[in-house]
Design a protein around this nucleic acid. Structure first.
Length: 455
RNA sequence: UCCUCUGUAGCUCAGCGGUAGAGCGGGUGGCUGUUAACCACUAGGUCGUUGGUUCGAAUCCAACCGGAGGAGCCA
């Protein structure tokens, strides 16, 4: 007999004579004549309740010793439940314990701290919360591919080991070989020149957009910033579409359309998990997501945003002045207090943005945009790229960059250059936004942060 | 890198200068349908580490190690 996922059994439309379920015991309640066993196999948030009569063959050996965390294989009938709280349950005809859980199994039915669960990252997917988070993570990854594939975008695998520096993206990890315990640097470079773990696939992505028109990347990126916050990790996943024949407005349109698509999909496909988050993690989550799905996003230029913040009458810890980056508190005011919805800020001063962003006609700003969401801040950052050779060269000079280091990037402007634009979406930030989970370490299976790379 | 908080049983925590506690989890027994089941009994701890103050330290002090929150940087 083949295993039926718990999710499928719970969706049954009629009783069944026989079925096989396999999973892990979440809880067991014994009485004199029978035991209730709740098992979970990760296929959905809910457990399946199993009723095992004390008269069952092998009851003493295979049912009584079961504790939370043990793995089981159970055959039985699917019948309507006599109790409240679930529609279907299984009347066991055979219970086999596959693996016992020793008495110090750390997951209990009462609440755990998130810090403790991080220390058992190998077991936390067996908890309700992390099961739900990683089901949503999987669905969102699928949904991102679907969004781009349905629109004719090609998926490009940009390199993870790279010699190029996507300037402005942050500190990099160096890639070296080992000879025993000795780390080789300098003359013995494996690749001839120094290499790093990628901080962004954007520059390589542009080369493919300038050939295949619409592309996207979706892969891991690495930042060696010594950041200690709930929103930063040293290894995270990023989605970077790059679109040829595209300006900043179309770029912003795409980013907003994508976010609405993803939110709409998670509301539909992960309803049970979202209800769990809404109830235990972030009250009001579903209402907020529905709002994002249904409402138009706001859009303001950087200059307007600065004026708006200055006129707000709010006192900020950091002063608002033209030419400075918007601080977390400023972004928060815009999305959470002023507009109360996702907001795209565009046309930033060129001094605070990287060399590849396209200079606007005013000579002062570049065609950059940040999509800000309540609670998280920046979730998307993008720009129209500078496609004019002479201006790109000027920008590189102003940023003290050597053209030789970017020769192939410059070449794109020498051979059939086209207007193009793109953006980066932090996958974990998206997950924090749609699940309400407050810490990035809790939406990635095995988080890497400064000082911590366990598992 | 800066600022702040924190470390006691498998877990969540109380104890804050005078013999180490509770709830949950585990074990044993009980209970005719339970839903974070319930009732009784029971095992379980070098109080993060090292040093200091004291007649006496989980408790006060210092350093170190681990964890967290915020800022900056960014996604």
């Amino acid at each position: 007999m083949t295993r039926t996922p718990v999710a499928e059994i719970l969706k049954s439309e009629s009783a069944a004579e026989t079925a096989l379920v396999q999973g892990w015991v979440r809880t067991k309640r014994d009485s004199k004549a029978f035991s209730f066993i709740e098992i979970n196999d990760g296929s959905c948030l809910s457990n399946l309740q199993i009723v095992a009569d004390a008269t069952l063959d092998g009851y003493d050996e295979s049912v009584l010793p079961l504790t939370t965390g043990a793995s089981v294989s159970i055959e039985g009938k699917i019948i309507p439940s006599q109790g409240k709280g679930q529609q279907w349950e299984m009347q066991a005809t055979s219970v086999t314990m596959l693996g016992e859980a020793e008495s110090d199994f750390p997951l209990q039915k009462k609440g755990h701290s998130m810090e403790f669960l991080r220390s058992i990252a190998h077991l936390r997917p067996r908890s309700n919360l992390f099961g739900a988070v990683f089901r949503v993570r999987s669905r969102m990854a699928y949904s991102i591919h679907r969004f781009f594939q349905e629109r004719g975008f090609l998926y490009v695998h940009t390199p993870i080991i790279t010699g190029s520096d996507c300037e402005g993206a942050g500190e990099m990890f160096r890639v070296v070989t080992t000879a025993g315990e000795e780390i080789k640097l300098g003359d013995d470079e494996f690749f001839g020149d120094p290499t790093y773990l990628t901080v962004s696939g954007q520059l390589e992505g542009e080369t493919f957009a300038c050939a295949l028109s619409n592309i996207y990347t979706f892969g891991p990126t690495f930042r060696a910033e010594n950041s200690h916050t709930s929103r930063h990790a040293s290894e995270f996943w990023m989605i970077e579409p790059e679109i040829a024949f595209c300006d900043l407005n179309q770029d912003m349109d795409l980013a907003e359309e994508m976010l609405k698509f993803l939110v709409s999909d998670v509301l539909e496909s992960c309803a049970e998990d979202l209800q769990f988050f809404d109830r235990f993690i972030d009250k009001g989550l579903i209402e907020r997501l529905e709002w994002v799905r249904d409402r138009k996003f706001e859009r303001v230029s950087y200059t307007e945003a600065v004026e708006l913040l200055q006129k707000s009458g709010q006192t900020f810890e950091y002063p608002v002045e033209y030419g400075a980056n918007l601080q977390s508190e400023h972004e928060r005011y815009l999305t959470e207090t002023h507009f109360q919805c996702p907001t795209t800020v565009y046309n930033y001063p060129k001094e605070i943005k990287p060399f590849y962003m396209r200079r606007n006609d005013d000579g002062k700003t570049v065609a950059a945009m940040d999509l800000l969401v309540p609670g998280i801040g920046e979730i998307v950052g993008g720009s129209q790229r500078e496609e004019r050779l002479t201006i790109l060269r000027e920008n590189m000079k102003e940023h003290d960059l050597q053209e030789d280091d970017y020769w192939w990037y410059v070449d794109l402007r020498r051979y059939g250059s086209v207007p193009h634009a793109g953006f980066g979406l932090g996958f974990e930030r998206l997950l924090m936004f749609v699940t309400g989970v407050a810490n990035i370490r809790d939406v990635i299976p095995f988080p890497r942060t400064p000082g911590s790379a366990d598992f």
